[in-house]
C-alpha cells in the first residue's frame, strides 16, 4: 500500500493503480521529482498492459520529463516495440530530443532493437537528427557494430 503510483506503474500493478486513480484522478498525470509520469515508468519497464490502461484512462503520452525524456524514448531504449507502436498510434511526437540530443530512434539503435528501429522508421522518424556526441542513427549503428540495425536503416533509405 505504500508504493507510489510510479512504482505501481513500473510493476504493472493495474488493479492497485486503478484504486488510487479512481480515488484521485490527478495521480494519472503526477510527475515524480525528475518529471516522470506513471505512463513513463510503465513504458520504461515494458509494462504493455499498464501503458494501455493508463492511456485509456486519459494519461497524456506527450508529456516530457525535466530533461526532456519521453515515454517513447524510454520504451525505445528498452526495446519495447509493442509500447512504441501503441504510443505512436496516440500521435506522440516521434522526434523529441533530450539532454543527450537523444531521439527515440537513436536510443533504439543504441540498444540494438531492430524491430523498434523499423517501427520508428516506418512512422517517419528523422534519420538525420544527431545526438550531442555527433552520431547520426547510421553512424551509431556502424560504430556499435549493430549490423541488423544498419541493414534496417539501409533498407528504409532504399525504399524512400
Amino acid at each position: 500500500d505504500s508504493l507510489s503510483v510510479h512504482q505501481l506503474a513500473a510493476q504493472g500493478e493495474i488493479a492497485k493503480l486503478d484504486e488510487h486513480i479512481c480515488k484521485d484522478d490527478s495521480l494519472l498525470s503526477k510527475q515524480d521529482e525528475r518529471g516522470f509520469t506513471p505512463l513513463m515508468w510503465a513504458a520504461a519497464f515494458g509494462e504493455v498492459a499498464t501503458v494501455t490502461y493508463l492511456l485509456e484512462k486519459g494519461a497524456d503520452p506527450r508529456v516530457l520529463a525535466r530533461e526532456r525524456e519521453s515515454a517513447l524514448s524510454l520504451a525505445s531504449s528498452g526495446g519495447y516495440t509493442d509500447i512504441v507502436n501503441t504510443l505512436l498510434k496516440h500521435h506522440v511526437e516521434i522526434n523529441t530530443y533530450d539532454w543527450n540530443g537523444g531521439t527515440p530512434l537513436l536510443y533504439a539503435v543504441r540498444g540494438n532493437h531492430v524491430k523498434c528501429v523499423e517501427s520508428l522508421l516506418g512512422r517517419g522518424a528523422d534519420l538525420t537528427m544527431e545526438a550531442d556526441s555527433g552520431y547520426s542513427p547510421m553512424d551509431l549503428a556502424v560504430a556499435l557494430g549493430h549490423k541488423k540495425v544498419q541493414q534496417a536503416i539501409e533498407t528504409h533509405i532504399l525504399n524512400l
Binding site: 508504493l3 525528475r34 516522470f36 524514448s73 556526441s133
Partner: peptide, 21 residues
C-alpha cells in the same frame, strides 16, 4: 517482507568515448 522498488527510469549516454564522426 521487504518491498522491491524499481529504480528511476534512465536513458543511456549516446557516446562511445570516441570522437564524433
Amino acid at each position: 517482507t521487504q518491498l522491491s522498488l524499481y529504480t528511476s527510469p534512465s536513458l543511456p549516454n549516446i557516446t562511445l568515448g570516441l570522437p564524433a564522426t
